[in-house]
């Protein structure tokens, strides 16, 4: 199989499953971890990824279809988006190609869509667990790949879980905010636009979740950081 890249959790290959071109994600043995811990984590994450995929499908959220899993071989076979780029790349392209003002308008549109989807995820109690712009794919709709019209596909659900509580949703938002601020520090408005759209879609617990999010944030700020 042709290796595409080595991600954070495993290696990605281009494969074929029942005649369909697909992406194979192999969570290979991490020799730095205790074998027991490694097996436990790997099984947990493969299961989380497949479960989240079907939950997303039921909720009308785009995520790669899971074609096949093999816990013994530590592999997941899933839908492959060959034309797609990550949201991180798209943001960097938009910033490079446009003036500061135009870039903000274009990115506001993107962030509103992303925020809406995260709201939908949480309204369905799906906690992604690792929201970054590397884990959001932009899949062009038209042939000419100009990324004017696109689908937004969330990937890497290995750290995801199902939880109704506001705490986990708040932490999920905090992780996203931190990832945006560190990766796209020159565009500090991204998260605000996402949160604005998020609040409209995240369901009846909106107030509690946002309050929890502020609380999680405060925990980080209050920490004294000695030595």
């Amino acid at each position: 199989m042709e290796i595409l890249k080595q991600g954070a959790e495993g290696r990605l290959y281009l494969g074929v499953f029942k005649g369909e071109k697909c992406l194979v994600k192999e969570r290979f043995i991490k020799h730095y971890r205790h074998p027991e811990l490694d097996t436990q984590i790997t099984r947990q994450r493969i299961k989380a990824e497949t479960k989240a995929a079907s939950r997303c499908q039921n909720a009308g959220i785009l995520a790669p279809r899971i074609l096949h899993t093999d816990l013994n071989e530590r592999k997941i076979y899933m839908e492959y988006f060959g034309e797609a780029i990550t949201a991180k790349e798209l943001i960097q392209r938009v910033v490079a190609d446009h003036s500061v003002e135009t870039a903000e308008i274009v990115l506001k549109n993107l962030c509103t869509q992303v925020g809406t989807i995260i709201g939908k995820l949480h309204a369905n109690n799906i906690i992604h667990g690792d929201l970054t712009t590397s884990n959001i794919l932009i899949n062009p709709k038209s042939e000419n790949k100009d990324f004017k019209e696109y689908d937004i596909v969330f990937i890497d659900f290995g750290l995801s879980h199902y939880n109704q509580g506001a705490e986990d949703k708040g932490v999920d938002l905090y992780v996203l905010e931190r990832a945006l601020l560190s990766t796209h520090s020159e565009q500090p408005y991204l998260f605000d636009y996402m949160l604005e759209a998020y609040r409209k879609k995240c369901g009846k617990d909106e107030g509690t979740i946002v309050a929890k999010f502020e609380e999680v944030r405060a925990r980080g700020r209050k920490r004294t950081m000695i030595g």
Binding site: L37, Q40, I41, G129, D130, L131, T132, L159, V171, D172, Y174, V175, R178, A179
Partner: peptide, 8 residues
């Protein structure tokens, strides 16, 4: 317990 939340 093993607690990883994204990069946190």
């Amino acid at each position: 317990p093993y607690v990883v939340k994204g990069m946190d």
